[in-house]
Amino acid sequence: MRFSIYRYNPEQDDKPYMQDMELQAVSDEMMLLDALLELKEQDESLSFRRSCQEGVCGSDAMNINGRNGLACITPLHSLSEPVKLRPMPGLPVVRDLIVDMSQFYQQYRNIKPYLIVHDPEPDVERKQSPEERDRLDGLYECILCGCCSTACPSFWWNPDKFLGPAALLQAWRFLADSRDQAEVERLQELEGPYRLFRCHTIMNCVDVCPKGLNPTNAIGKIRHLMLKRSI
């Protein structure tokens, strides 16, 4: 199987280039990450992140044949040759397929991804009804791989100002949480032309999310809550 892989080592290379590589023994059960690990045996300098190898940690997110995804859960047989692998677009490249995700994490930090509670701490845990808990389904599963935000043109153009779909999905996750008591403050933080409203609902985020989540829907819900609050 033929591969065309983005290579760039800022300490050695003047500019990035695509390197052709080939793998002889390929089986139907192999995932893209398995192939990458074998390719790394051919060329030790090939760099990429990986950890859990089962679509949970989100560290091996990359651009696969023009589409963001996780290498560990992408079956090799689903890919057309040559398999073009590039780092996720819109973020600075550290080396080869590894990107600097500082900006992405900063935007995640900006939405205060934790419960804010003003009431005194209860003696027992903060309880939720099953219905209240159900509202978090489709939100808490985000693994912060960055596939969605780096597929979003609004995030490419304004990564420092627009929060991006991943952070906005989490913003709604805490707005939707019955235990959180900072709805007004959270909504105020999201106001303005950039943080939330750079989203033009093109739904690239939904298209690429490896966990099947829907950030566009979450963004729509934030807007409607904002609208409800402003009336």
Partner: peptide, 12 residues
């Protein structure tokens, strides 16, 4: 205000 630049244009 931030609302004038964010929510209101979206509503309009």
């Amino acid at each position: 205000s931030r609302q004038v630049q964010g929510l209101l244009p979206w509503i309009w």
